[in-house]
Design a protein around this nucleic acid. Structure first.
Length: 216
DNA sequence: TGCCAGGCCCTCTTTAGGGCCTT
């Protein structure tokens, strides 16, 4: 099993294509089910934070005013991650901001992404909700700090990922390598049980999102 | 003024619609 970088962004909105910018990033490195390193920073992208975002995250304009420039933070984050495979809860969201903020800093984003929403829908199909906090509660995992702050959410996503790796090991005798996680999220949901039982090649059905997120 | 994401996945589907998930 190799290292994975679990990331979470706090942002001013839902899409960088609509002008939203990142306000905070956190990354935890997970190895053998344990967090072995952490990176966290607020970042100043020179934009104002809507009041409802401050209510949601607790991140204010005053906090951002004292934060380092976004490009500097993203360069440090990029060095911290290197070429590790990345993981996020609803990775389509975080990957968009990872790519957009690195591009604004003049940096590439070659990392593949796995998505804990896609994986949890496959491994825990009967969970009442796949929201991060509710999944954490459903699985009996500990909450980590204030929800909707980047480090707390990244820690919880890492805890969820470790729980899924443990599930694959105990229930299916599968080593949850990055390559296996990428293959699992590429499987159509209906094909997952047979694939896990037989450890065969994934069914030819491949979701568009998984194709975008990439492979190891 | 009103609208402004987008991909997954289920279903009363597939020539579609709507809830979920992220801030």
């Amino acid at each position: 099993m190799t290292r994975l970088a679990v990331i979470d962004f706090e942002t001013t909105g839902i899409s960088p294509e609509q002008g939203a910018r990142a306000t905070e990033v956190a990354i935890v490195l997970l190895e053998h089910g344990r967090v072995v390193d952490r990176f966290q920073s607020l970042m100043n992208a020179g934009v104002r934070i809507p009041s409802f975002i401050t209510q949601l995250t607790g991140i204010s304009n005053a906090m951002i005013a004292e934060a380092p420039p976004a490009a500097q933070v993203m360069a440090e984050a990029s060095r911290f991650v290197g070429s590790l495979p990345m993981v996020a809860h609803n990775a389509a969201f975080d990957r968009k901001f990872w790519v957009a903020e690195l591009a604004l800093a003049g940096l590439d984003a070659p990392q593949a992404y796995a998505c804990t929403v896609l994986l949890s829908r496959r491994l825990f199909p009967h969970a009442p909700s796949h929201k991060l906090g509710l999944l954490i509660d459903h699985l009996g995992l500990p909450r980590a700090g204030r929800a909707h702050r980047a480090l707390a959410d990244a820690e919880m996503a890492a805890s969820l990922l470790a729980r899924m790796q443990d599930e694959l090991r105990r229930q299916w005798q599968l080593e949850a390598s990055p390559a296996l996680l990428m293959a699992l999220q590429r499987c159509s949901k209906a094909a997952v049980p047979g694939w896990l039982r037989q450890q065969q090649a994934c069914a030819p059905v491949q979701t568009r999102q998984a194709a975008v997120l990439g492979a190891v």
